[in-house]
Nucleic acid binder design. Structure first.
Lengths: 261, 261
DNA sequence: CTAGACGACTCGTCCAGACAACTGATTCAT
DNA sequence: ATGAATCAGTTGTCTGGACGAGTCGTCTAG
């Protein structure tokens, strides 16, 4: 009995659920289970590996956390399909400097000017200490805070919160949400105020999304997000700041160029 | 009985394990459970919420996946302590250009030259098609492939694989692992070969770590990694390429500056 | 006083069973 | 033909139990 492997002995070496996960991972990476195709169902895996359903589900949970597998209720689990990667280049800012209608978002996604939608929400708020620090200003300084959700062909791709100092934009067309999306983007807005952008500084972090982001951006389980904090400079003055530009990491690649010559 | 909430009815609205996770998340974010301190034990949570252990463990698993909680066998679960963040700036490359002993790694970590260790492993390999593309060369071109693990004060902080075209370095001191760590880093190595670096291009992605990375970098559960692909240019020629410079995202922040003036 | 054994308590793993909820195809009534 | 109801098959949620394995304090023998 049990000449090959004595099934019921629970924890000897590597846990059973890890062994199951290892085997399924091997099959996916080796191409035996092609991307996008269904894995065996839970009952099939129970029969194949001779373990209980809880153990199978634990193994699948591990693979979900690694981003290799996606599960859909009532349908099954399938190998995560390869997603198109969007490149956000650092010279997109340079392109935005040209006098076109393009914005950095449309450049990134290679979109026609009309192919995207923008949800926005404007508020006038006093700066928290964290944001005030970005501007190099006193906490409580009034800001125009703008929350955006960008969609390409209806699919949400990016959410962000961007702020202008209120004294810069109050009473101008820039402060009117009805004028979004603004042809030429932020740079054109600032230019309409007589301000020329000279420098961008971005801080990049990665983390797991909070539940709100999972819902808004439709992020599959086990996918991290890239969170960018951006400061826009005109000379030494910070004229715009964005906290947590959130991008799903499975669809995004950032590119930066550092010129040393 | 069960006037407040009828406990045994399983799936009504939000699943019980999510309710438990929500409540624990609230306590952590509100500071009721300070970072670094222990959560109630599983038996205590079972008593408090009146659910089975499996449900409690599922809730804790959710919080682990969100990166809010870390569990240690035999000790308990505690709110994830805040970790010091390392800033990797784009001007670190400019600093490395100066004629000092500093490397980009020591600049990032504000380390003394002697305070870090470097595990390395050199091989001569033909370029895969993916790496050949980075160099703009034919697949099969011979490369000197160097695998590194960087440690600061003994703690692994970064792992990477960097390659030079073999015809550039064969027979030179650069190809000898015994000369690592090389004072002044990659740039100084290239300079010793008469090559001046003019440009760096980096692509940044975020993803969940593979098991090998979890082990090597001691990454806690639910933490993504930043993966950087770097190309080093001398004029139009790519003289070095690094695939997947892997950095744990809970300890790392990248900074890039784009000059538009 | 110290080293080691012990035990209480913790989380880790695994099992078996039950029912809810969702999906997709089939069947049936209209 | 068409739309609604049904049904089989799938994953989601939850229970209860059992034992392995790591941690830490305490107690005891030396």
């Amino acid at each position: 009995m049990g000449t090959l492997i004595d099934v019921p002995s629970p924890p000897r070496g590597r846990p059973r659920y890890r062994q199951v996960a290892d085997e399924l991972r091997r099959r996916i990476l080796a191409g035996a289970i092609p991307a996008g195709s269904l894995l065996p169902t839970e009952p099939q895996l129970i029969a194949e590996f001779g373990v209980s359903r809880g153990t199978i589900r634990e193994a699948l949970g591990l693979l979900r956390a690694e981003g290799l597998v996606v599960t859909e209720h009532g349908r099954g689990s399938y190998a995560r399909p390869i997603l198109p990667v969007t490149r956000r280049g650092s010279d997109r800012y340079r392109q935005e400097m040209e006098l076109t209608r393009a914005t950095s978002f449309t450049v990134d996604h290679d979109l026609d000017w009309s192919a995207y939608q923008l949800d926005r929400e404007f508020r006038e708020v006093p700066a928290s200490s964290a944001i005030a620090e970005l501007f190099g200003a006193e906490p409580g300084t009034m800001l125009l805070e703008r929350r955006f959700v960008f969609r390409a062909y209806g699919v949400p791709q990016q959410m962000s919160t961007s702020s202008y100092p209120l004294d810069l934009v109050a009473g101008t067309p820039v402060a009117d949400p009805a004028n979004e999306p603004w042809p030429g983007g932020n740079f054109a807005q600032l230019r309409s105020l007589g301000i020329t952008v000279t420098r961008i500084v971005e801080k990049i972090r990665a983390r797991m999304p909070v539940p709100e982001e999972v819902q808004t951006l439709r992020i599959p389980g086990g996918t991290p997000v890239l969170a960018i904090t951006r400061r826009t400079f005109a000379g030494d003055r910070v004229v715009e700041a964005a906290v947590d530009i959130v991008l799903p990491a499975d669809r995004t690649e950032l590119e930066y160029e550092v010129d040393l010559s």
